[in-house]
Design a binder for these strands. Structure first.
Lengths: 166, 166
DNA sequence: ATGTATGCAAACCATTTGCAATGAC
DNA sequence: GTCATTGCAAATGGTTTGCATACAT
């Protein structure tokens, strides 16, 4: 389970919003929120749905899942990442830092931590804009793909060498 | 027209790639690339298609447009942003910095410039990762929406005041 | 009792794919 | 001539919508 303080705050944000807007406090909304805040890092809609069934014996329709995620995104309790070919969600309260490194070869996404970058963004003043969160994607090539490329090049060299010997 | 040096380099990257991989140098690929590099900032697929027709009298099918954009994304000559409800592309050679501020109320996207942030990201070392570009999204509320919200609150106050007078 | 939220299936729409025709090499 | 590329139309797949039912208030 996550930090109890975080959970209390998150719960209060949802409660507040529903009460203020005369929307219903349905078990779906609370169970989905709880499930999300018990997932570490990214998750897909599929994964969330699976977790709800397995861990909470709770079936929800696609439509409700999407509706609820949209609601949570509006409340900034959840953030959505649209990667190449896939969409991932992530709980985001008290976790404004979302730095990801993305390998442009294999598509692998890794979360990273950099206080230096966070500080720079916090220190930056945006005129005419009330900032309340950010997402950073750093593109490049991961070590695995670099390794593969190096090996490939070596083999090509070897081949050329052999060819030239014929 | 864009910087001629940038264009030469971009052209060389495409030429190189096509030659090395025995892919064909079709007019589509070159015309689309030229059109893209003559657009300032973001563009949608529709806008690109329109520009091709109007400025270059060049019709291309959806399929080719998508294929070619995917090719350019692989070559990192183009970057794709998937915003709430819309997708935008952007030329990205020699322009590794992509800072955007996104209003979470009206969805408006504005490009921003921050050397402080750029420097922080450049200075950050990513282990086991060869970085070659980044995209930053800063979420918040723009001045227009802030204004609207303030006005709304004031009206509510006024209304309450009037109600209490009845 | 009222009207919001859910579930289901159908609709939607951006993107991809299959296939025949075209054209770069 | 060969085979990659294009264009068209059909398929795909994630997301939204319409409507009847369920249920929070």
């Amino acid at each position: 389970m996550i930090n109890i303080e975080v959970w209390k705050n998150v719960l209060r944000i949802l409660d507040n919003y529903l009460e203020m807007n005369n929307h219903r406090k349905t078990p779906e909304r609370y169970t989905i929120l709880k499930a999300i805040y018990n997932i570490e890092g990214h998750f897909t809609l599929e994964e969330l749905s699976a977790k709800l069934e397995h861990d909470y014996k709770f079936r929800v329709s696609r439509a409700t899942l999407y509706n609820t995620l949209n609601l949570f995104m509006q409340l900034r309790l959840v953030i959505r990442h649209r990667f190449q070919g896939s969409t991932a969600y992530e709980a985001c309260y008290d976790n404004t830092s979302h730095c990801h490194q993305i390998c442009t070869v294999c598509g692998k996404v890794t979360e990273i931590k950099s206080t230096l970058i966070e500080q720079a963004i916090d220190a930056t003043h945006f005129k005419r804009f009330r900032k309340d969160g950010f997402t950073l994607y750093v593109y490049g090539i991961c070590s695995v793909c670099q390794g593969k490329m190096t090996r490939q090049k070596n083999q090509e060299k070897k081949k050329k060498l052999n060819d030239s010997k014929l």
